[in-house]
Design a protein around this nucleic acid. Structure first.
Length: 270
DNA sequence: CGAGGGACCTGGTTGC
DNA sequence: TGCAACCAGGTCCCTC
């Protein structure tokens, strides 16, 4: 479910309920996520959550003892529920807070994780080698041009590479390339300089629009209150194989790039 | 170093 | 209706 807009939607949704709240209890029903939930996470109990931030698709809960690092994988979601609410299937972890609210992690496929790190975050192995945030000034057209020149992989895989830029998943990679008129299979180092400038802007634009609409709810993504996002209505190519291109009316095509489903308009994207 | 593919999981949909 | 095959918003890790 989650690409960057969905993770940011979750962050904004949970922050008002958990920031500055003391952690009363951490209940781990299923520790077997992508990596085991560490026992050490229990050392946060009794401490307040000082901040709720995001790096790439990782959510970071800061405490005096270290950071809780949460990734939602493909199917994870976070909800705020009242203490005492019975757990449903795949509700793997509860962080119970002093205000009687519970931050509850649900993840059917268990590709997500909940970790704890006492290291400075920039030294954590999962965070140390990430590229710039797409919505930061560090993700500039000059930067993207410099990176693209070195790579021969398909432009779609290139912008989905977390070492290049974080937070661009399958949906928004497809959408940004459509907006820029670039064929997703074109080699990164064969995209013109002008189009890389446009692509930089379109990646930012599509992510900002999706955040404004609360993310894309495909199957079951919901925010902290259990409500869906509305960006699905805005998707121009993702999931629209066989339908008419909004721009030229030609049929949207699908192909596979790096084992991922890829959608594009053969007329508008070259 | 870069590129490619398997791996980790459950559940919904599709097709015989 | 039943069951197997395939597919899904991610990304680490191994091999070549």
């Amino acid at each position: 479910m989650p690409e960057l807009p969905e993770v940011e939607t979750s962050r904004r949704g949970i922050e008002p309920y958990i920031q500055q709240q003391q952690i009363v209890e951490i209940v781990v029903r299923q520790p077997k996520l992508r990596w085991p939930v560490p026992e050490l996470i229990q050392c946060c109990v009794g401490l307040p959550i000082l901040s709720v931030s995001r790096r790439a698709k990782y959510l970071l809960l800061e405490t005096q003892a270290g950071h809780i690092i949460i990734h939602l994988g493909m199917s994870g979601s976070l909800r705020i529920v009242q203490q005492g609410e019975p757990a449903a299937k795949h509700d793997h972890v509860d962080i119970v807070l002093a205000n009687a609210k519970v931050l509850r992690l649900n993840d059917p496929r268990r590709f997500g994780c909940m970790l704890f790190s006492q290291l400075p975050l920039e030294q954590h192995p999962l965070l140390a080698n990430l590229g710039p945030e797409p919505l930061s000034d560090a993700f500039s057209c000059e930067y993207l041009q410099a990176q693209a020149g070195k790579r021969s992989i398909a432009i779609k895989q290139f912008i989905m590479d977390n070492k290049v830029v974080v937070g661009v998943g399958n949906i928004y990679a497809n959408e940004a390339l459509f907006r820029t008129g670039i064929h997703p299979k074109r080699a990164a180092n064969k995209v013109s300089q002008i189009r890389l400038v446009q692509l930089t802007a379109h990646i930012k634009q599509v992510l900002i629009e999706a955040i404004k609409q609360g993310g894309t709810s495909l199957k079951d993504f919901t925010n902290a209150e259990g409500k869906p996002g509305y960006f699905k209505q805005t998707l121009a190519v993702y999931g629209r194989e066989g339908e008419a291109c909004n721009n030229c009316g030609e049929q949207i095509k699908a192909l596979r790039i790096g084992q991922r489903n890829t959608f594009y308009c053969p007329h508008c994207q070259r």
